Amino acid sequence: MARFGVVFVFLGITIFALFCHVSCYPDQLTVPPLYRIDLDLPEEERWVQVAKDHKEIVPDVYSVLLSFLGKFPYANLTIKAIEAVAADVDNFLPKPYAGEMRGIAKALNMNLGGIVGMNILYDVTAFCTSIVTQDVNGQIWHSRNLDYSFVDMLRNITIRVDFIKNNQTVYSGVTYAGYVGLITGMKPKGFSMTLDERDQGAWWENFVIGLLDRRAMPISFLMRDTFAECSNFKEAVDKMAYTSTEASGYVIVGGVNKGEGMIITKGRLGPVDLWKLDPDNGRWFEVETNYDHWVPPPASDNRRDPAVKKMNEIGPKNITVDSLLSVMSLPPVLNHKTTYTIIMSAAKPELTKVWVRHYNG
């Protein structure tokens, strides 16, 4: 912005203010559209407007996913498994997800297997950075970057969603058009949660094994169930930690009371590790990327250490939306695969900010 100089005097102050606010971020930030998903509607009608607004993009995303699948062993087996789930979706997947996906497929005039495939594959291919923080006043904050391949397409279908019942917002999230689960969300005055992929085993192995265990849920569906059914931090932690899922993952949970921050290192059948905030002993924040917190991250993907260093520089007295955004905007925490950033606090949901990221560094 500075390179344009002072062209008009009356714009000078505004340009200066904008420069100071955004120049420290190495990318363009845009705000995703907000949709209201009415849970009082029939399942097949809830996402119709979202689907129609993105009908030119979502089918292309699935085509790219199929190309992505082709690079891995047993791709044909995985595709056949997805088709089998789609053919008997009501028996494989719980309510309301089967009906919601059916409605999206109909609105897009798209094969149901495509929508099912998108929903299942998103669960096991995301790389992310999540931070749960307690500031000097005891307020819990939750920050996250979500990183994916084929990022250019996903930026165009990133949306915010308020889930409405009886005309009241019961929980909210950030997701992609065509995706009915949640891996980023918040229950106002209750808790916040994000999911980071756990780098344990090939994703296609987790997917096939999960299909064979009919008790296991896609972890994004479990997360949405948790927002719908649980009211507080403890209930959310217990449900997420001890429910069988199709894949491992890191579930980052923030509450509304002091000390209510947790990183669940989740195996398919239960927790491997529960890592809780301990502000009285100096652990006022925790950073999770895609590796177990008790081992060093690989040198080829070390987002953890830069985030930890930046958080310690900021300190608990200086936690704000802007200071947390600066952490999430620090390369390589921010990278060319980052689709969006969210800063939220379940205790003060009105502070929530979401940005689509356009970083090409």
Rank of each mutant, 00 (worst) to 15 (best):
M110N: 01
F92P: 00
E235Y: 05
I37P: 03
D301Y: 05
M328V: 07
A236S: 12
A247K: 14
D199M: 08
Y176D: 06
S149N: 05
Q134D: 05
P332Y: 05
E44W: 10
A98Y: 01
Q49F: 04
P59C: 02
Q139R: 13
T352M: 14
I159M: 08
L334N: 01
S326K: 12
E288D: 11
E205V: 15
V9S: 09
R357K: 09
F163P: 00
F72R: 11
N206K: 14
I37Q: 04
A126W: 02
K310L: 05
G255H: 01
I82K: 02
L222W: 04
L222R: 06
R283N: 10
V208K: 03
N335S: 11
G254E: 04
Y97E: 02
N137Q: 07
W47P: 00
F227N: 09
R3M: 10
N281Y: 15
P298C: 02
S143R: 05
M193I: 15
I342Q: 11
Y250F: 15
P298I: 02
G267Q: 15
T352H: 12
Y250G: 06
N281G: 08
P218M: 07
L69P: 03
M193Y: 13
G282C: 10
I157P: 07
G282A: 13
L77H: 10
G249N: 10
S248N: 12
N281I: 03
V136M: 09
H54Y: 13
Y359M: 05
I319P: 13
N91I: 00
G210V: 08
M110P: 12
S23P: 06
V7H: 04
C24H: 12
Y171G: 13
L29R: 08
D60P: 00
D292T: 08
T30N: 11
V58A: 00
N119M: 05
K234N: 12
T243N: 10
I13H: 02
G99I: 10
L351W: 15
L69T: 06
V132P: 00
V308H: 07
P59I: 01
K189R: 14
V272H: 07
E229S: 11
H142W: 00
N290Y: 10
R198H: 03
A107C: 09
D213R: 08
I159F: 12
L195P: 00
P297R: 04
D90Y: 07
K239L: 14
T14W: 08
E197Y: 15
I120H: 14
H293T: 13
F227L: 09
V58Q: 01
T133V: 15
K239Q: 15
S63V: 15
S326W: 03
G249Y: 11
N232Y: 05
G117F: 02
E313N: 09
F19R: 02
V180H: 07
L222D: 04
T125A: 07
P331A: 04
E43F: 04
V50G: 02
V50Y: 00
F8L: 08
G267W: 13
I159Y: 10
G190T: 01
C20I: 09
R102F: 01
L351C: 08
V354P: 12
E100Q: 06
N302I: 03
A51P: 13
G190A: 01
D53A: 14
G178S: 05
G254V: 15
V85E: 03
